[in-house]
């Protein structure tokens, strides 16, 4: 489905996750963050960049991975993206929701 985000037509799935990362930019991320009640800081963007990099390397994202990221610890991660940090941060980052395997 289509959704207007930051004055752009963006393809998203039913949960609001971007289907095409090439449609993502910082404004889109900013706008998605706002919808989720998060105002972005430098630390937020640092985490987003880390998640995007992991995703592009096809490495699975997990809470355990965050622990070893060197970017942020889990407590801080929860503080930055309250209520489901991995789900919210990946949404803002424009990458798929982690499947946490099957």
């Amino acid at each position: 489905m289509k959704k207007a985000i930051a004055n752009k037509e963006i393809d998203v799935n039913e949960e609001g996750y971007l289907l095409d990362f090439s449609q993502w930019n910082k404004e889109v991320g900013e706008s998605l963050a706002e919808e989720n009640g998060i105002s972005m800081t430098d630390k937020h963007w640092e985490v987003i960049a880390y998640l995007q990099e992991k995703h592009h390397k096809e490495e699975a994202l997990s809470i355990r991975g965050i622990k070893k990221s060197g970017v942020i610890n889990i407590k801080e991660f929860y503080a930055l993206f309250p209520g489901g940090p991995l789900k919210k941060s990946t949404l803002i980052a424009g990458i798929p929701k982690p499947k946490s395997c099957i």
């Binding site: 997990s62 809470i63 355990r64 946490s100 395997c101 099957i102």
Partner: peptide, 8 residues
């Protein structure tokens, strides 16, 4: 605890 687990 965390995924993945044997026989989810």
């Amino acid at each position: 605890t965390e995924m993945p687990i044997k026989c989810p």
